[in-house]
Each structure stands twice: as C-alpha cells, then as structure tokens.
Computed example of a mutant assay.
Amino acid sequence: MKTMTQKQQGFTLIELMIVVAIIGILAAVALPAYQDYTVKARVSECVNMMSSAKTTVAMNASEGATLNSGFNANEETDNCEAVAISDAGVISVDSTTKAGSVSLTMTPTSGDAALEAGTPPSGAIEWTCSIGDADNYKYVPSSCHNTTTPSKG
C-alpha cells in the first residue's frame, strides 16, 4: 500500500501582509469620503425643511401679503436648527455641528428684483441658495447647487 503525503497549502505571510496593506489603503481613502457623504445627507434634511418655507413665501408674494406671515417654524432636529423667514422673504437655516455647521440661505427674486411685501411678483420666483462658508460647499446637496459662495480669504 502506497501512502500519500499531502502538503498543507495556504497563504504565505507576505501575501497576507499585502492584502492587509491594500485593505488599509482602501479604508484610508473611503472613510473620509463616507464621512463627507453622511454630512451631506444631514444637510439635505435642512434644505428639504426649507421647501415649506419657500411655499409660504411664494403664496404670500402672489397674494400681495407679508412674505413671512402664516409660517410655523419647525422644531429643531438632530441635524437642523429652526427655519426662519425674514420680512424680505429670505429663508435661512443652520445645520447643527453633527451636520457640518452649514449656514444655508434661500433668497427669492422675481425679474432680477427682490420681492416686496404687498406687491405681487412680476414673473416667476427664482431662488438663490447661499452658504456662509465656502469650505462647506462640499456638504451642499445637488438640489442647492445654484449656490453662491463667498470668496475664500
């Protein structure tokens, strides 16, 4: 009877070290991108909360009423402070520290002019989204990419 010896096969130490190094490099690249994506998702909650305020301003403008009348501000959330509307119809909200501390402002215009309380707009209302700090632009969702940013420095 012939005995057969079987050699145990597996990965060498150097092969395992290469795999661990590759996983480490991928994690080093992916983790910051994932964190930015998470903050962007949280800021998008704030942009969505501004939509009801936009409706209020548009309805009041078309009726010739005070632009911020009848708006019930939302409760603060884990990601967003309360939405506010100024007398000029400018909507603002700040995200919390957890959501990158982004200051968002939506400014309405009609025919390249600011809206005026008591005067219905002459055309369609257009919204310009602004942020307080240019470094936070990467956190602004695409629904707000007509964004104006302050210059750095």
Rank of each mutant, 00 (worst) to 15 (best):
G153Y: 06
A27V: 14
Y139L: 08
S130K: 14
E75H: 02
M1A: 09
L67N: 08
E126F: 00
T5H: 14
K40S: 04
G70P: 06
S143R: 13
A53E: 05
G24V: 10
C46Y: 07
I14M: 13
G123C: 01
I85Y: 02
A134M: 06
G64Q: 13
S62A: 11
S110F: 01
S95G: 11
A88R: 01
G118E: 06
S52I: 11
A117V: 05
Q35S: 07
T107I: 15
S62P: 00
S151R: 13
V83I: 08
V20E: 02
I23P: 03
H145I: 03
T107R: 10
S86Q: 05
I125M: 13
H145C: 01
Y137D: 12
Y34K: 03
N74I: 07
G89L: 05
I14C: 06
Y34N: 09
S110I: 14
E63M: 12
E76R: 10
T3G: 02
N68Y: 08
E75W: 00
P32Q: 12
V102R: 11
M49V: 00
T128M: 01
R42N: 06
E63V: 00
C80R: 08
L26Q: 00
T148F: 06
K2T: 15
S130R: 10
D87F: 00
A114I: 05
K2M: 10
G24L: 15
T105R: 05
I22P: 03
A21Q: 14
S142M: 13
N136P: 06
D87K: 02
V102S: 14
G118D: 11
Y37D: 07
S122K: 01
V83M: 04
S44M: 03
K2V: 09
E15T: 10
E15L: 03
A27R: 03
T97P: 00
Y34W: 08
N68P: 10
I14Q: 02
D133H: 12
G132I: 11
M4T: 11
V102L: 09
G10V: 02
M50H: 12
A27S: 07
D112M: 11
Q6L: 14
V93L: 09
A99L: 12
E75G: 00
L26N: 06
I22T: 14
L26F: 15
A82F: 04
N79H: 12
T97H: 04
Y37S: 09
Y37M: 10
P150S: 06
M1S: 07
S151D: 09
T149I: 14
F11N: 01
T96I: 05
N136L: 13
V43F: 06
T105Q: 04
D112K: 15
T105V: 08
T96M: 06
A99W: 15
G118A: 11
K7F: 01
A27I: 14
C80Y: 09
G89H: 02
L13W: 09
T96Y: 13
N146S: 08
S143A: 14
S62F: 09
T55C: 01
P121G: 06
